[in-house]
Design a binder for these strands. Structure first.
Length: 154
DNA sequence: GCCAACGTTGGC
DNA sequence: GCCAACGTTGGC
């Protein structure tokens, strides 16, 4: 059963344009350092799942495009890069702590701003919109997916 | 830059 | 296992 997700990225780090410009529109999703988000990737995601690509921590936060999960989970290389921003001294090759999946961009869309999503009654239960929600990866229900992707086409 | 909310760490 | 202190996220 296909599932749906929302994945946050800071456009200064990786924007929807960066994703679409990558070879085969595909990039590894690295740098997740939160267990709940990791577990969603590890236990919930399957290739072909739908992804809303969300721009966060920027002047215009919102959904910037549609993507899909393009691989299963594998160890996040950045945890082993000593001196790197995402290095984790407690991770080993034998016992990796963090994982990545590949994400393939399907299309860049007109930005659906967070402010507008907050005004859509159908989205009031979205995890993204809950007070205090900071998870970089959240599940999206099929109904929410439909409302949002329909809106992105309009 | 502010700050609310949440997650993690570490002493006990 | 508790919980205070600290760090991070992310909208504004």
């Amino acid at each position: 059963m296909k599932q749906y997700w929302l994945m946050k990225s800071e456009p200064d780090e990786v924007s929807i344009d960066d994703l679409m410009a990558a070879p085969r529109h595909t990039m590894p999703w690295f740098g997740v350092r939160n267990y709940q988000a990791r577990n969603f990737m590890r236990d919930g995601m399957r290739p072909g799942d739908g992804v809303l690509f969300y721009h966060s921590s920027c002047p215009q936060p919102g959904v910037a495009g549609v993507a899909e999960v393009a691989s299963g989970a594998y160890p996040d290389h950045s945890q082993f890069e000593e001196g790197g921003k995402y290095f984790d001294a407690k991770a080993t090759q034998e016992q990796p702590r963090w994982i990545s999946v590949d994400v393939r961009g399907l299309k860049k869309t007109a930005l659906l701003p967070l402010s507008e999503m907050r005004q859509m009654p159908e989205l009031e239960d979205m995890l993204l919109l809950k007070k205090g929600s900071r998870l970089s990866i959240t599940p999206v229900t099929p109904a929410q997916w439909k409302v949002i992707t329909d809106r992105l086409k309009a």
